[in-house]
Design a protein around this nucleic acid. Sequence first.
DNA 1: GCCGTTTTCGGCCCGACTGTTTTCAGTCG
Length: 576
Amino acid sequence: MTIPNTEIRDMFDQVADLLELKGENPFRVRAYREAARVISGFSEQVEKLVKGGGDLTAYRGIGKDLAGKIQEIVETGSLKQLEELKAQIPESLLELLQIPELGPKKIAALHKELGVKTLADLKQAVEAGRVSTLKGFGKKSEQKILESIGRTKKAGGKRMLISDVEPYATALEQYLKDQPGVKQVAVAGSYRRGKETIGDLDILATCGEGDEEQVMDAFVRFEDARDTIAHGKTKSSVRLRSGLQVDLRIVPEESYGAALHYFTGSKAHNIAVRKLGIDRKYKINEYGVHDGENRIAGRTEEDVYAAVGLAFIEPELRENMGEIEAAQENRQPGLITLNEIRGDLHAHTSRTDGRNTLLEMAEAARDLGYEYLAITDHSQKVAMAGGMTEKDLREHMQRIDAVNEQVEGITLLKGIECDILAEGTLDLPDTVLKDLDLVICSVHYYQRLSREDQIKRVLRAMDSPYCQILGHPTARLINTREPIDIDLEKIIEAARERGVVLELNAQPDRLDLPHNYCKMAAELGVKIALNTDSHSIEGLKRMKGGVTEARRGWLTKADVINTRPLGDMLAMLRKR
DNA sequence: GCCGTTTTCGGCCCGACTGTTTTCAGTCG
């Protein structure tokens, strides 16, 4: 039996939810949540760690008891404690936690006093006016609950892709900057950390003294705001028409850095930094670092970190996954930047499913300042996209040569995105692959193979000396399609042995290889190709999102092959 | 349930807003 980390994480989260509904010690609840978080950040499989006799208690947040429970899950596939809790508390109560106004205490009251078990029960109880008879509930609560029930059914509170959120973030930032009295505006939160998906936008502002109220008034009047969730002097929240929630906080200028740090998070990172403050007898909040009555830091983020003995930590690293220790020991990675990218190694043209011609793509890449662009159209298996046979590909190679003659200032590389077939063989014969500059091998079909078959298949493809880059290794589509069932640790190990480069595909809904595995790959010396997988000239500009994911994966210029000049980059590809 | 040169008990990050209160609990981030 195989238990993915995500399943262990979900079980612990469920235990935490159920314990909370039971009114258990909140710190005990927190321990389960923390363990769930730590597990989800693992870049190796917990199951493998346990079976290999690894010591889970070495990880912060996992003690003897929880290590035992993880072992139980790995060995039996279930957790007795969770089953017992489910027997005591109706599992359907968990769905009530999705309603914004309801937390564990209120749900417990609804359950105990009114016998509410499901969303449907709750709706009935509200409509019958029974909810407002309870202590702590009133007419307004009933109203809000009813609205929220309608909403969870429609939108489901899904997190949005960061690329979809960007236009809102930019527009709001500009709108607020244009308001009279406003001095500084920054989008903080998971947006600033560059997470793949965004739950809500956190915006921070400073303004002239006395201007707070008019700024807040302007904020809730933002033209795209659908309704106001909260409207205070220093904190307000609105929901945009798209369903995206936006919070605005206004702080004094001398607190800007502390607040920016605080609202950038992550929560786990902040807690760890605050603990360092406590060690020094400081209190850290969004207004500054305080030594008794005195504020000793807070104007900039650098001040805040310095106050607790840390070098500045890049927002993308702030997940309490080792960055604090790294900053203490001054061994922070010099994260890769967009302007270090010298070329793009994955692009499609109108020959298959792209929208632009070879020439247009070449000129667009040159205009981005690139030195090279690999043309990697699809192979024959991808018939829907006009995938190429050997003969087609040879003709395409000639056209690429012709464009290289024609265009100055950029080199087009002759490549292919060659499909990995069901059995792990490649979609085109070696006789043509050997004449290319670059071969990317990718999984597009047969995504539902068993874990065992999937691993076998991809490893077999990687055995081919022509497999130089493994394209979008998990094949995930964020919010749309689960990753294929595969042991990435094994794939990374195989890449190291064979000299295969792993792709970090920058498409906003792929970001594949995911950042935690990028980190693992780099630690093992496996190189990454940071590619846009463009299907148009606009697509070439999506490199930025890939760089952000790479930064979240602690990657430096040295880890990414397309930061090198053409000759050096080619020399890093597997020989064949 | 975790954790530890303030160690094996007794702490555990911190504050704003809302609704229902009449001084505060619950929720959220």
